[in-house]
């Protein structure tokens, strides 16, 4: 099964890149591959390069990649409940990450941990550091996860659906926090989500994935003003709008099912669900082409 097939993307220093797509589109596998966290077996990176500050992460020995993980590149996950170890205090868990990469005393690591908890806007961090994960709310846990990820001031943070499990009011807090920290620490962030709203509010540039491929890439303004790929267009139109006054309009749903990666068509992978499909879509898969400066799409009809 090809979970991710020929994905090319780049994150620039200090940039917020949004990676958007539905379940099974390969966005998480792409992210895990960057840190070589795809379990092998069954997963294997069969080709390609991941270049980070001039080094190819795919070919780096395991020890080197371990030094990069959690230090230069770190990651936060969707489920703040299961990502924390229930038997250690949150302070210990933040400090542990620090001690793994820096030669500091237990005391110093703890002080640093409290400092980081303060930076993610946890109130009364010295007291919170001594609490266990189950004593914290979901939003608070996600802040702790962010603290762990940011303790060593990474250059790149990969955030995989960091707010999906949270309520809207908490989601807004966490996104605001991430944006503030990115600014403050000048780091690059790769934000993976299925929510176009989250993308619109946070990302600088957006990569849209479908069936393990990049189907469109553009700056956030360009993408929302002028989506080129029918899948991107479909995603936007299938979202209910909030504006009032208009009579209830039917949602324009994308027909069909989320693709099965074992039974993909030979040509364009979106063709079976595409409302604009033409005969040329079926025989060969279109290339990702730059249609305008900085805006590319994988569709023969684009441009």
């Amino acid at each position: 099964m090809r979970a991710v097939d020929g994905v090319t993307l780049s994150v620039r220093p200090g940039e917020m890149l949004g990676l958007v797509g539905e379940s099974g589109c390969g966005k998480t596998v792409t992210a895990l591959s960057i840190l070589r966290l795809v379990p092998d077996p069954p997963g294997r990176i069969v080709g390609g390069t991941i270049s980070f500050e001039g080094r190819d992460l795919v070919r780096l020995p395991e020890e080197e990649i371990r030094k990069i993980r959690g230090c230069a590149i770190s990651m936060i996950f969707q489920e703040p409940m299961t990502s924390l170890n229930p038997v250690f205090t949150v302070g210990e868990q933040v400090a542990e990450g620090i001690r793994q990469h820096q030669k500091v005393s237990r005391r110093e690591a703890w002080d640093q941990a409290v400092e980081v908890l303060k930076r993610v806007k946890i109130s009364d961090p010295a007291r919170r550091a001594r609490e266990y994960p189950h004593q914290l709310s979901g939003g608070m846990r996600q802040r702790v996860m962010i603290a762990i990820a940011l303790a060593l001031r990474p250059k790149l943070l990969i955030a995989d659906e960091p707010t999906t499990a949270l309520d809207v009011t908490i989601q807004a807090q966490i996104l605001e926090l991430l944006l503030g920290l990115q600014e403050e620490m000048k780091m690059a962030v790769m934000l993976i989500t299925h929510d176009l709203g989250v993308i619109a509010e946070t990302a600088d540039r957006v990569v849209v994935m479908y069936a393990g491929r990049v189907v469109e890439e553009a700056s956030v303004k360009e993408l929302f003003d002028n989506p080129l790929h029918p899948y991107t267009q479909g995603l936007m139109e299938s979202l209910p709008r909030l504006e009032t006054g208009k009579a209830r309009r039917r949602l324009r749903a994308i027909p069909g099912l989320v693709p099965n990666l074992l039974e993909l068509p030979t040509g364009c992978k979106f063709a079976p669900r595409c409302p604009k499909v033409v005969e040329q879509c079926w025989p060969t898969e279109p290339e990702l082409r730059e249609i305008r400066p900085g805006h590319s799409a994988r569709c023969i009809l684009a441009g």
Binding site: G139, I170, A172, Q173, A200, E201, F224, L242
Partner: peptide, 19 residues
């Protein structure tokens, strides 16, 4: 708190304290 699907829109956002 609902993210608006329009990068242009600059709404006044009300942040609630705490959980």
């Amino acid at each position: 708190a609902i993210p608006e699907v329009d990068p242009q829109s600059k709404r006044q956002r009300i942040f609630l304290e705490g959980d």
